[in-house]
């Protein structure tokens, strides 16, 4: 199937399928630490983050990866089982201020359409700077 052909679902390469801004706070990080078991103190203690030379307390990379895919899950009518491959590169840390938090913006766009389904490419930014590179979600559409 050529990329410029519409699929049965009417999808075309370049279509934005989901877009969302997500507000993170320190509470979000503590909740993720408990759920994931990643208790590295750079994700909740300013003194430790500063001592190791960071600009502040950082979101877990795996938290950013985990929430960035949620708009795609919702586009799939909530069926996360249709995601067959998901990859990201951690290109820039997400600093989460104790008072103001951080706002993560996700734009999900169709990158490839083929017989296997679609590749959805995520653009994930904080303050207009990309924080996840090569963020690609392979989904089956059947």
């Amino acid at each position: 199937m050529a990329d410029n052909m519409a699929t049965p679902a009417g999808l075309r390469v370049g279509d934005v399928v989901a877009e969302r801004s997500i507000h993170l706070t320190r509470d979000t990080l503590v909740r993720y630490a408990g759920a994931s078991g990643d208790f590295n103190p750079i994700h909740y203690r300013d003194d430790v983050a500063t001592a190791v030379g960071l600009d502040g307390v950082l979101a877990h990379g795996m938290l950013t990866m985990g929430l960035a895919v949620q708009p795609v899950v919702d586009w799939l009518a909530g069926d996360s089982g249709k995601i067959v491959d998901y990859q990201v590169r951690f290109t820039r840390p997400v600093v989460v201020d104790a008072e103001t938090g951080a706002d993560v913006t996700v734009v999900a766009k169709v990158g490839v359409l083929d017989d296997a389904g679609a590749r959805i490419d995520l653009t994930v930014t904080v303050a207009d700077q990309t924080v996840l590179g090569k963020a690609q979600v392979r989904v089956v559409l059947a």
Binding site: S36, Q70, S80
Partner: peptide, 27 residues
């Protein structure tokens, strides 16, 4: 914790209705 809101990730009945044995873990 990853801000998932899908019933398939949270509600066993919804997951079973969609053909899964129990709640589906986020990717």
């Amino acid at each position: 914790a990853v801000l998932a809101t899908s019933p398939l990730n949270l509600d066993p009945e919804a997951a079973r209705a969609a053909g899964y044995a129990d709640v589906v873990a986020p990717p």
